[in-house]
Amino acid sequence: MIGDIAFGQFIPGKSPLHRMDPRVKIVLIFLFIVFLFVAQNFVALALPVLAALAAIFLSGVPLRQYLKSVKAVIFIVLFTSVLNLFYGGGQTLLKLGFMEIKSGGVSNAIFIAVRILTLILLSAVLTFTTSPNSLTDAIERLMKPLKVFHVKVHEIAMIMTIALRFVPTLLEETDKIMSAQKARGADLESGGLVQRAKALLPILIPLFVSSFRRAYDLAMAMECRCYHGGEGRTKMKVLHAGKGDAAACAVSCLLCAAVIVCNILLPGSLT
């Protein structure tokens, strides 16, 4: 059944990371991702990696969940690592015909694998600890400066929120329509490509119709509550950055500064 697929990666909890201001979280995660790429040697790289591990620990989300998100990209990580094995200088470790694996290549491969894995873990921390609604809320606030260029920031955020809200609803709807058409003998499983595409019509058309119906209903409900866009709108949950957020910012800035210092003092590991 389609409904069994868990949607959204948010895992509710009460950890310090869950309680953090989503704006601060987005900015800091972004900062660390940038510094993952600024770091030029293993010592510098270790700092954002440590930060990521600390965040994973603090998030209180079961490790199993993180492993799942890593599993999804493991192929990409392996692929890039293996490619990198063959680049870089240093001593020759292994000779496979015309290809050589040198010590520099091995360290490159490890460096890049760690970089990508940390990148994935950091973004997982963000999506695991932040509900979709507070994410869009934070994005709305962070994009506010774009208003100068007449970007409709509030409307974009509202569209994102509504879209996220209706994904599970529409999944359920699709499931119902599929059952109903199957009960009328619709054959969704067999046949060639064209036939299968045609077999989807009895599902897509009712789904479209019902999406439009829902959109009209929602628009009507919003009008009834005098919704008129972002102008002069206040928020029920005002985003509030507290002491914890300030501390997180301070620690993060220090770590990033340390990355730069390590970069200057120590030689680069990437060859």
Binding site: K176, I177, A180, A183, P202, P206, V209, S210
Partner: peptide, 13 residues
Amino acid sequence: VGMVFQYPEHQLF
């Protein structure tokens, strides 16, 4: 075994 679901009008296409 013919089955008519709840709100079957939503399946018209």
